[in-house]
Nucleic acid binder design. Structure first.
Length: 150
DNA sequence: ACCGGAACGT
DNA sequence: ACGTTCCGGT
């Protein structure tokens, strides 16, 4: 009962990433997981043993190059890529492992909640999002509803 | 290296 | 919205 090459910080198979769902543009966290899934990029980016969800970018220039190729942004570099990663801090998708160089950690619990929330995946329930029926003189109740923030 | 504001593009 | 580009600060 052994999982052959299951590296330490890897997510459960439930989070196996399908490449670009629908026709929407590739997202960075998605792309990162994509690389992490493949052994061929183990020398570029890999899960960190020990901490669950933690990964280390072994070759920042190469990761940036690959990301730039995917997005057709040849001028991409690690400085810019890392800025995009930093935007994930507020969204609680990622955070930095302080002290450890090029090391970040996924927050899978938040990622799962985000994916579960229908508002995150707009096309998930059908190709045509129904416009809310607007009757004259009728105020749309709960128009400005937000997530119940914890 | 790492951070986060600001302006900008899609 | 989700980055990209640029950059002053730690």
């Amino acid at each position: 009962s052994s999982l052959p090459q299951d590296a330490g910080g890897a997510p459960p198979p439930a989070l196996a990433v399908r490449s670009s769902p629908g026709s929407r543009q590739i997202q960075l966290w998605h792309f990162i997981l994509e690389l992490l899934q493949k052994e061929e990029f183990r020398h570029v980016i890999a899960w960190q043993q020990g901490e669950y969800g933690e990964f280390v970018i072994k070759d920042p220039d190469e990761v940036a190059r690959l990301w730039g190729r995917r997005k057709c942004k040849p001028q991409m570099n690690y400085d810019k890529l890392s800025r995009a990663l930093r935007y994930y801090y507020n969204k609680r998708i990622l955070h930095k492992t302080k002290g450890k160089r090029f090391t970040y950690k996924f927050d899978f619990s938040h990622l799962l909640l985000l994916l579960w929330d229908p508002r995150t995946e707009p096309g998930a329930l059908g190709p045509c999002p129904e416009p809310p029926p607007q009757r004259p003189g009728m105020v749309a109740a709960g128009a400005g509803r937000r997530l119940p923030e914890p």
